[in-house]
């Protein structure tokens, strides 16, 4: 008998003596979905790069968070002709209020949240591209898919679990900070806003669901096809930075139909999102007559989601392992 570094004889004797059968009760077949989602999220949280991108993404949130304090403080100082703003010098409170309310829209209205979601786009795109390769692409690279498929209801539980994990990433950067801002404004102004501004509250949730439904299928399809982080970030940067500029050139520069904006995924999400919030329907920087119609935006997102789900299904059903 050969003695190995782990002690061969003792190992097999231990197995003979100590191995016990398991006769416990199994949980419901859909419960592993939560284990898959939890492990995917842990996988992501173990990466330092994730926290770096997330922290950068939260800078906009902190700008809004402290901006609200500034807004309500300035609103209290309106009677004064001039106020001292920390170490930055003196300013007229009415001018400041005009700037915060009129230009930055930090008044807690639907526009505040529309702008907040819009500013989060870039950070969200980068974070999702990174998350997609970590929680989906790496499974295909490491051949983990067959491990999942060999379990009861493997593929179904896998896809739903990963969908939950990706949704959490979307909400961590958009819906949750937006809700925090909403409650902060209620705290600073009045809790009656919970009733008077219900539309905004539900709008935030609706916008979150919309982002989820629009972006996660796209994430699945692209992460399953591209799999590696850098190409994935390049692909998403192209989709969310290059294509919107291209659409703008086509519609505003070349005078083509606004239907071309259907190619702009984020533009379509914004178009529908601002309707969820009940914000004025004019996207900053776009001529109102050249904006995409909501029905076309909805059609574009629906077609994209169906297409992405079909690609995802075909890749995962093929059971590809590298």
């Amino acid at each position: 008998m050969v003695e190995s570094e782990f002690g061969l004889e003792s190992g097999s004797k231990k197995l003979i003596l100590e191995y016990r059968p398991w006769k416990g009760q199994r949980v419901a077949s859909w419960m592993p979905i939560f284990s898959i989602a939890r492990e995917a999220v842990y996988q992501l949280f173990r990466r330092k790069v994730f926290w770096l991108i997330y922290a950068l993404g939260l800078l906009v949130f902190f700008l809004y968070f402290f901006g609200q304090y500034l807004f309500f403080w300035v609103a209290d100082q309106q009677a004064e002709p001039v106020v001292r703003v920390g170490g930055f010098g003196r300013a007229n409170p009415n001018d400041m209020l005009q700037f915060l309310r009129g230009i930055l829209k930090m008044d807690g209205s639907a526009e505040t949240f529309r702008n907040f979601f819009s500013f989060q786009a870039r950070a969200l795109v980068i974070l999702l591209a990174f998350a997609g390769t970590t929680i989906l692409g790496e499974d295909l690279i490491h051949g983990t898919l067959l491990f999942f498929q060999s379990k009861p209801r493997g593929l179904r539980n896998y896809l739903v679990g990963k969908f939950l994990a990706a949704s959490l990433v979307v909400h961590l950067l958009t819906t949750l900070p937006a809700l925090l801002l909403f409650f902060e404004i209620c705290f600073l102004e009045s809790w009656s806003r919970l009733w008077t501004q219900q539309r905004v509250f539900w709008g935030i949730l609706g916008y979150g669901v919309l982002l989820n439904a629009g972006l996660v299928p796209l994430l699945f399809a692209s992460a399953a096809s591209v799999r590696k982080t850098v190409p994935m970030i390049l692909l998403w940067a192209g989709l969310f930075l290059l294509i919107p500029s291209l659409c703008m050139i086509l519609v505003e520069g070349l005078g083509l139909s606004p239907a071309w904006r259907m190619l702009d995924v984020w533009g379509c999400l914004e178009c529908l999102g601002e309707r969820c919030l009940g914000a004025p329907t004019s996207i900053p920087g776009q001529r109102p007559d050249l904006q995409i119609k909501p029905i076309l935006a909805g059609l574009s997102l629906s077609l994209l989601s169906v297409f992405c789900l079909a690609i995802t299904r075909s890749i995962y059903l093929r059971g590809e392992n590298e």
């Binding site: 009760q25 199994r26 419960m31 592993p32 284990s35 492990e39 999942f148 379990k151 009861p152 493997g154």
Partner: peptide
Amino acid sequence: IFAGELQGMPRRD
């Protein structure tokens, strides 16, 4: 543990 959970075992088991 994860493999056990995927097989429908309660987390403690």
